[in-house]
């Protein structure tokens, strides 16, 4: 695989995580537990989609075949999406949604920080814009996890169940395949061992304050980065891509 192809795929991995998570969060719109949270989740969805658009546009440029952000978002099939399985998980209750975002945020913030030092100027610039947002996201999800963990018995139970259910999806965030290792050597991508260390520290600190237990590492799900998703993924794309697929070539 050429460096160019590797960079293209690397952009897609990040973009797809953000795009699919944004989709899940936007499903909450109008149905949040309080109006302030409707606003907060929409805000996150907007930030994620903004970063995803930058990454998809850049991916299209790297690929050099004239594909736009919309071509890449609306006209790729299930097997061509390379997001982790974490972000495609259905919303569940609010504790599940918050825990899913928390686990992603604890990975996304150190990733964005590290990418600001990427040898790839465009990736560094995109990450630079995302860092502030990612800080806010992590604060938001951490605060809610603390409220749930140290709130009522019911909220504690729900938050713990959410973490336990999601933990199996965290392994995939830190897998370094050949493609990734090549990019690390070139100074484009950060070593995920460092990102994992930061993730662990955040998780331990927040869960301790939340009086929640860190789940034990067991079987870790994988496949998302290779386009082998859960059955949900097809439905997500059917929804996202409906209009572009139903009216090929139309402008919107």
């Amino acid at each position: 695989m050429s460096q160019q192809e590797a960079l293209f795929t690397y952009c897609l991995r990040q973009a797809d995580d953000l795009l699919i998570l944004s989709h899940r969060l936007s499903e909450w719109c109008g149905h949040g537990p309080v109006l302030e949270e409707d606003i907060a989740l929409t805000n996150r969805a907007l930030d994620h989609i903004g970063e995803a658009r930058n990454l998809l546009t850049y991916a299209g440029q790297v690929e050099g075949k004239g594909r736009t952000e919309d071509d890449l978002a609306f006209l790729r099939a299930e097997r061509q999406f390379v997001n982790t399985k974490l972000v495609e998980q259905p919303n569940g209750d609010y504790a599940f949604t918050i825990a899913r975002s928390f686990l992603f945020d604890a990975y996304h913030l150190p990733l964005a920080e590290a990418l600001t030092k990427s040898s790839d100027a465009q990736l560094a610039a995109i990450a630079g814009k995302a860092v502030k947002e990612a800080q806010y996201h992590l604060r938001h999800s951490s605060d809610w996890l603390k409220r749930f963990g140290d709130g009522t018995e019911e909220s504690h139970r729900r938050a713990q169940a959410a973490l336990d259910g999601l933990w199996t999806f965290t392994g995939e965030l830190f897998v370094q395949d050949d493609l990734h290792q090549g990019l690390v050597k070139a100074g484009v991508a950060p070593d995920l061992i460092a990102i994992k260390a930061s993730f662990d520290e955040t998780v331990d600190n927040v869960l301790a304050e939340a009086t929640l237990k860190r789940p034990v590492d067991g079987f870790m799900a994988s496949g998302g980065r290779q386009g082998k998703h859960g059955e949900n993924m097809g439905f997500i794309l059917a929804e996202i891509q409906y209009l572009q697929r139903a009216y090929p070539g139309a402008k919107w």
Partner: peptide, 24 residues
């Protein structure tokens, strides 16, 4: 909100999200 997940382009999706957020 009914159309956010089915908006036909990423730009339209972002605009609609921002609009519905304004309404909240």
């Amino acid at each position: 909100g009914n159309w956010i997940t089915r908006a036909p382009s990423l730009r339209r999706k972002a605009i609609l999200l921002a609009k519905v957020q304004d309404e909240a």
